[in-house]
Design a binder for these strands. Structure first.
Length: 565
RNA sequence: GCCGAAGUGGCUCAGUGGUAGAGCGGCUCUUUCGUAAAGAGUAGGUCGGGAGUCCGAUUCUCCCCUUCGGCUCCA
């Protein structure tokens, strides 16, 4: 444990001590340090966020009486079933049971702590939450208090300031402000994409389509509603029924709204006899999916019930797995570097509830590990984190608040092709089952756009910006020339908007600036006289006064190269 | 789904047991302006929905919906 973690863990003890002073009936459970802070969970503690300042004040008061963290041998907690459960487990596994005492507060604890309690000085309680005992939904829900601590006031202030700054990048705030999307209470978790948001979706999909066509991908569109038999065959009905939208009809058939594309891709592959010469067969699609996510999990664009993926199913022979994975990792690097996004990989291994035999799982996991090692990229392993049909490599990203989200995923599947009896004729004349690689690079377009909004704080690179150029005539007599400029931009397929309101130039600049439009073209007497436009960037910088054709030439290059700015 | 919190004009937010208020935005008029907000006037809200208590509820109570912070889950 590093020093900061020690400090935070010690602060968690102080928090528990303060809570017990104020609420003697509360039962402390556990209180570890975490990334950026610590928490402590209590049972029988009914408080609201308004009580946090009171607890914090008590902590400041108590810590004055604290000196050192002493290792003691006796228990301070009588009648605490949570602590007792931990003690019983430690005894069962013959582990040492230790307690730490500071002031009058004793806690079951493995340590370590800061050497001097006086170091606990710069801390803050942050928020209140519910959390299940030992992380299981079957257990009782406890009251969790989150807090953070630092060694200096400045570090604490900086951290709190960063949190505030991050909130300003929140896609749920910026997205609607920029007119990209909205939500309505009649469709929880299902975004309405407004014209500007659709522009971004289309640009992302166009880019996806171009890059994948080059690499031998073909595109399909398949039914959004299918009979439940399709999902019984794939195994999804058994594994994910509670997360599917079901459609009842007048007839006996039960249908379900498509929650993922794989079964339909299997149908397409199986619709004809296939040869090893057809492989790898790469079938992509961007169909709309619906998943009935639990209400409490919905979160802006990051967790939705309706979304589109930049999906593809690649049918390969076993020999082709490695090379195909490398191709996909190359695509991943291309797609993320173009936005300057930092990502890392996570390998998910065989889950408890899995399909197939353990041996082929082991083999598949070994293959993926080898590929990850060779990629040279940072990766972590999540035990039992695979899909029910195979191990997977996820792409992880952080949002503005530092929360982890999965975007892309590349999954290996030996099982579902078997379920669909997929076959191809091999070179030796025998029939074999293909392996499928399920892969998305953006992940869901919704989540990816959420990440992009926060990453760029709304100031998208020009190629993605819904409006690339705002034309600002200074007075009405400049309107006619401004319209000519507007037309020229349109001819060059540059998205522009002419601000023809009777407002001052400053006011128009302010509005364009707040909409994060990459370029403003200001048009007044001078520009008309010299047949030019005056360019202003959203950074506030005044750029060249130049002929419109020259501006178009430059911005065209920037757009075509997908330059970051 | 669970624990906790919030919901007042398009947006940001005041406010009260006696039938709602500001700024911005919108609209109209005036202004024709040179790099982040010109001036005046005007419209706009069944105070998230339903039920209850009360002479009277936006305000108090209960239920529901949506959203937010977490937990759990995530093909």
């Amino acid at each position: 444990m590093n020093d900061l973690d020690k400090l935070r863990h010690s602060t968690a003890h102080l928090l528990a001590a303060a809570v017990l002073e104020l609420y003697p009936q509360a039962k402390p459970t556990i209180g570890p340090p975490i990334e950026n802070g610590f928490y402590y969970d209590f049972d029988d503690l009914k408080i609201s966020e308004d009580d946090l300042p009171k607890i914090e004040a008590k902590m400041h008061e108590l810590v004055k009486t604290w000196d050192k963290f002493e290792l003691v041998s006796h228990s301070g907690h009588v009648q605490n079933p949570y602590k007792q459960e931990l003690i019983d487990e430690l005894e069962k596994s013959n582990q040492k049971i230790t307690y730490y005492k500071s002031g009058n507060f004793v806690d079951l604890c493995a340590g370590p702590h800061v050497d001097d309690a006086k170091k606990i000085k710069f801390f803050k309680s942050l928020k209140l939450a519910g959390a299940y005992w030992r992380g299981s939904e079957k257990n009782k829900m406890l009251t969790r208090i989150y807090g953070t601590a630092f060694f200096t006031q400045k570090e604490l202030d900086d951290h709190l300031k960063n949190l505030e700054e991050a909130e300003k990048r929140d896609h749920r705030k910026i997205g609607p402000q920029l007119g990209l999307l909205m939500f309505h209470e009649t469709a929880p978790g299902m975004p309405y994409w407004l014209p500007k948001g659709v522009t971004i979706i289309n640009e992302l999909v166009n880019f996806w389509r171009e890059e994948h066509t080059k690499r031998g991908y073909q595109e399909i569109v398949s039914p959004l509603i299918n009979k439940k038999e399709l999902y019984q065959t794939s195994g999804h009905w058994d594994h994910y029924l509670e997360n599917m939208f079901i459609c009842e009809t007048d007839e006996k058939e039960t249908y379900a709204l498509k929650p993922m594309n794989c079964p339909n891709a299997m149908i397409v592959f199986g619709s004809q006899t296939r040869s090893y010469r057809d492989l790898p067969m790469r079938l992509g699609d961007t169909d709309t999916l619906h998943r009935f996510e639990r209400s409490g999990t919905l979160n802006g664009l990051f967790r939705v019930r309706e979304f589109r993926q930049d999906d593809a199913h690649v049918f390969v022979t076993e020999d082709q797995i490695e090379e195909e994975y490398k191709n996909i990792l190359e695509i991943t690097e291309k797609f993320y570097s173009i936005f300057d996004l930092k990502y890392r990989f996570r390998l998910g291994t065989r889950p408890k509830k899995f399909m197939g035999d353990a041996k082929s799982w082991d083999k598949a996991e070994e293959t993926l590990k080898k590929i990850l090692k060779e990629s040279g990229k940072e990766y972590i392993i999540e035990d039992e984190g695979g899909a029910f049909y195979g191990p997977k490599i996820d792409i992880l990203m952080k949002d503005s608040l530092g929360r982890d989200w999965q975007t892309g995923t590349i999954q290996l599947d030996f099982q579902i092709p078997k379920k669909f009896n997929l076959l191809y004729a091999d070179s030796d004349g025998t029939q074999k089952t293909p392996v499928v690689i399920h892969r998305v690079i953006y992940g869901s377009l919704e989540r990816f756009i959420g990440i992009l909004i926060e990453h760029f704080a709304g100031a998208f690179p020009t190629w993605l910006s819904p409006i690339q150029v705002q034309i600002l005539p200074i007075a009405d007599r400049h309107l006619e020339y401004a319209k000519d400029v507007s037309l020229k931009l349109a001819m060059a397929q540059i998205r522009s908007h002419l601000d023809d309101r009777q407002e001052t130039l400053s006011s128009k600049i302010r509005d364009a600036q707040m909409q994060k439009i990459p370029y403003m073209l200001i048009i007044g007497d001078k520009e008309i006289a010299t047949k030019t436009v005056a360019e202003r960037g959203r950074s506030g910088k005044q750029l060249a006064v130049q002929p419109i054709d020259e501006f178009i030439k430059n911005i065209r290059i920037e757009i075509d190269n997908k330059t970051l700015n």
